[in-house]
Write a protein that binds this DNA or RNA. Structure first.
Length: 412
RNA sequence: GGUGGAGUCGCCUAGUGGCCGAGGGCGCACGCCUCGAAAGCGUGUGAGGGGGCAACCCCUCCGUGGGUUCAAAUCCCACCUCCACCGCCA
């Protein structure tokens, strides 16, 4: 949620910032709806004040008549006001966050800016196999049986692959715990409020699994439940920044991704992830965004994955992000870099919608929040593809064997 | 899922239709007193929104949402949460 009061004070500045991500027209509509709401509010409140003044004591028959008429006018004025508020709030809910000035210009994926590259794509003296081929000989990545069970875009991970994937999450969780992140296993079913608060509703509704009977959504990332951890709370300034690392299974409908990444488990409806989430002071969020990126890069390096860092174009950001970095690892079988992690500075956008504040010098201010990926199964896929040999055997990074991964995946 | 009890301004609590559109205590802040402190005394003490250059004025909020009424913390309905017990499942 953008700061509506600030927007009234500086409509030109807000409009220009939002125009970068194509939301100028929506913003104009919001301002008009807001002006109408304020008119209705002033009228309704004036009538209310009159009623309160007039009905202090027990009214006589004549006053009663006047008060009844007044009550009818108030009913009408309140209904008008509520309708105006509904129109305004609907528009407000769809206005995305103001982009950070240093976020890359452009409207789509192609416009992302290369920040840096690390490592060298491995040179193979053979045609590298993709993760599905590598996992298939022993049935350790089984999408066929998963499809029979659940439909497309699901996978069984079995045996060494299962153990390596779990070791990955353990490794990342331990690494982050060592950097001050408090490990959390949060709920994955949440109410509408949390989905709205994190900005996935209303704009991402088509990508969410909804359990209608219970009015609960399955989360597509632990970001939702981690953000919701402090919903409606007032944090102490001294508690900030508060860093959390969640581990959950995540669920995405992948609406609009038909035909994209259909092979294997690169893009599936259900996947696991370790997620970083930070609540901080407004002036800290820029630095902490860089910090999250640094953690993600450190993890990629420890795993030995060649990668590059991209500054995502403003038009390609989710509603709540002001700026986002993606880390893309090299996938030899695809012959290109693909996203394995991502981190966003959501400034006060989610904090406003979730009503998360802190007290400073007697005033309540909204916190800033950030999120970033620790690791998902995509890192596992990158490991398999980058560290394979001609025989289809995968050398597992040593950091993972310390957490229960086998030394190698595949033909022993 | 069932039955009973509870949900008031940070905490405790008063409150059964207009004098509560929220009183008291604790805590907290400031002041007086004191060499200093405690005690005592006094004053203040929430959130959201609108208007005004400003001092300030106004509206909303007694778990949530509806309803009755000229008027609701108070009456009615539904829901949520917590506590206790029962049933079912593990």
């Amino acid at each position: 949620m953008i700061d509506l009061k600030a927007a009234r004070r500086d409509p030109g500045g807000f409009r220009a910032a939002l125009a970068r991500r194509g939301a100028a027209a929506d913003f104009d509509a919001l301002l008009a709806a807001d002006a109408s709401w304020r008119e209705h509010t002033e009228r309704a409140e004036a009538l209310r004040a009159e009623q309160k003044r007039a009905s202090k004591g027990r009214p006589g028959p004549r006053e009663l008549e006047h008060l009844k008429a007044l009550a009818a006018r108030i009913d009408k004025a309140l209904a008008d006001q509520a309708e105006a508020a509904r129109r305004r709030d609907e528009l407000l809910a769809r206005i995305p966050n103001l982009p950070d000035p240093t976020a890359a210009d452009g409207m789509d994926e192609q416009d992302a800016q290369l920040v840096r590259t690390w490592g060298e794509p491995p040179a193979f003296g053979f045609t590298p196999r993709d993760h599905l081929e590598l996992g298939s000989p022993r049935g350790w990545i089984d999408v066929a049986r998963a499809a029979r069970l659940s439909g497309s875009r699901f996978a069984y991970r079995i045996g060494d692959v299962a153990m390596t994937e779990l070791a990955l999450y353990q490794f990342v969780l331990r690494t982050l715990a060592g950097k001050g992140f408090l490990p959390v296993l949060p709920p994955v079913l949440v109410g509408e409020r949390a989905m709205f608060g994190t900005g996935f509703l209303p704009t991402e509704e088509s990508n969410l699994y909804l359990l209608e009977k219970d009015e609960l959504y399955l989360t597509g990332t632990s970001e939702v439940a981690l953000a919701g951890l402090h919903m409606d709370e007032r944090l102490e300034e001294s508690d900030l920044p508060a860093r959390y690392a969640g581990y959950t299974t995540n669920f995405r409908r992948e609406a609009g991704a038909a035909g994209k990444d259909t092979r294997g488990m690169f893009r599936v409806h259900q996947f696991d992830k370790v997620e970083m989430y930070v609540f901080c002071l407004p002036e800290q969020s820029r630095d902490i965004h860089e910090e999250l990126l640094a953690h993600e890069e450190e993890i990629a390096r420890e795993l030995g994955l060649p990668y590059r860092v991209m500054n995502i174009a403003v038009g390609d950001l989710g509603a709540s992000a002001a700026k986002k970095y993606d880390i893309e690892a090299w996938f030899p079988a695809q012959g290109r870099y693909r996203e394995i992690t991502s981190c966003s500075n959501t400034t006060d956008y989610q904090a406003r919608r979730l009503n998360i504040r802190f007290r400073r010098e007697g005033r309540l201010e909204f916190v800033h929040t950030l999120n970033g990926t620790g690791a998902t199964a995509r890192a596992l896929l990158a490991i398999m593809e980058n560290f394979q040999d001609e025989g289809g055997r995968v050398a597992v990074p040593e950091v993972l064997t310390r957490f229960g991964a086998p030394a190698a995946i595949g033909r022993a």
